[in-house]
Design a protein around this nucleic acid. Structure first.
Lengths: 212, 212
DNA sequence: AGACTCGTTGACTGACGAGTCAATCTGACT
DNA sequence: AGTCAGATTGACTCGTCAGTCAACGAGTCT
């Protein structure tokens, strides 16, 4: 299975994966043909089946590949001792938002075709998604232990809200409900953390309302 | 088109819609056949096409029907002058969560199948989804005006986070990542509002941490 | 009774598209 | 030059399934 890609030769497997990202994002997984992917990759139809067992396997591969990168990134962020909980969450939000900024098509495919459809194929995806919640929950749990975060909201529940807010944000960009500009991406990072950590309500004491 | 359903006769159109909810939820929109829906409804295959133009139209109908109910409910909640912003949001969260409690299959279909489809078929769905954000944003906007909510988070952004958290909650139940019991439903209503309005962080002054 | 309308039936069709496979190519190694 | 392994090709197969349609049934009106 392409164990030794000849030097100089283009990695056709990668080519197919990248083409699939474009096609899946444009037409949707169910509304595209395998031949569309092959055409986009500039490759013969049959070659797709040389590298992958099925159309679904391509989607699986795209998801698992990218999701693992995210899981590792979250774990790495959590490991930085000097960061306050809120800063850790900011880093996490930043990583996910930057992922969308740099690879909007891939993130669209993952969110629209995989995250929302997790019941149709194997339990593997659900396990991976749960893992992401778990890693975020660990950050929250540490914050609860050191007294920064409230006791009465469980870490798992908090993680769910936090991730949900971010995913909805990406959905907004994906479906053109929100302006997807560089400035908006940056602003959103801070705002989503402020909304979830600080809350929408004005604190009883500090944080005077900024006019304008 | 079934303008005068004869009295005593079962409304076959409704029967088909209800069967579609069950089948779409169980097998997924793309992994079921129209004949599955007909069988579930106990009706001949062709009758489905007597009432609907296509398989997709059934999905459309299910979404639009239910979504409009939700939009109306949110508007109605916003109209209750005596409610504080946080209480209004609690009512909204409660309504959506209760929708899931009473019709989990329908809500599953709407969340799992429609959002995915939102890019493939018409912009109508997106418009409706945007409308929901808008109605929630109105609640937040009023709260910002009267000084209850922060100025530096826009109402639209706040609405997105709020709705995102709720949708993620439903996803958790849908995909069995969370226990879906009566008590959890009730607890979740309060928690999601507390998380979003009050934030995860302990307020500088009040709200002493509850032990246990 | 006869004619008309509308609900209902389910066998059939036609297109579509995932996956197969035998043939061909390419470069490496002897 | 000859052999071999793996990459690459694309025409073909074959099941599936959305959508059609001609016929039938059950009320209603005259």
């Amino acid at each position: 299975m392409a164990a030794t890609p000849r030097q100089g030769a283009v990695d056709k497997r990668r080519l197919i994966l990248d083409a699939a990202i474009v096609v899946f994002a444009r037409q949707g997984f169910h509304h595209c043909r395998v031949s569309d992917v092959a055409d986009e990759a500039g490759v013969a139809y049959g070659l797709v089946y040389h590298y992958f067992d099925s159309k679904e396997e391509i989607l699986n591969e795209l998801f698992l590949e990218r999701w693992q990168i995210m899981l590792d990134a979250i774990a790495e962020i959590d490991r930085r001792e000097q960061l306050a909980p809120r800063e850790k969450l900011y880093q996490v939000a930043g990583f996910i938002i930057d992922s969308y900024r740099h690879e909007p098509d891939l993130m669209k495919v993952i969110i629209v075709e995989v995250t929302r459809a997790a019941n149709s194929f194997g339990r593997l995806h659900l396990e991976k998604i749960r893992e992401a919640y778990g890693r975020i929950a660990e950050i929250v749990e540490a914050a609860r232990r050191d007294g920064t975060f409230k006791q009465d909201i469980s870490a798992e529940f908090a993680a769910l809200c936090f991730y949900g807010a971010i995913e909805q944000l990406l959905s907004g960009w994906i479906f053109d409900l929100l302006p997807a500009t560089e400035e908006e991406f940056e602003r959103a990072k801070g705002l989503v953390v402020e909304a979830i950590c600080g809350g929408l309500e004005v604190s009883p004491t500090g944080t005077p309302a900024v006019s304008g």
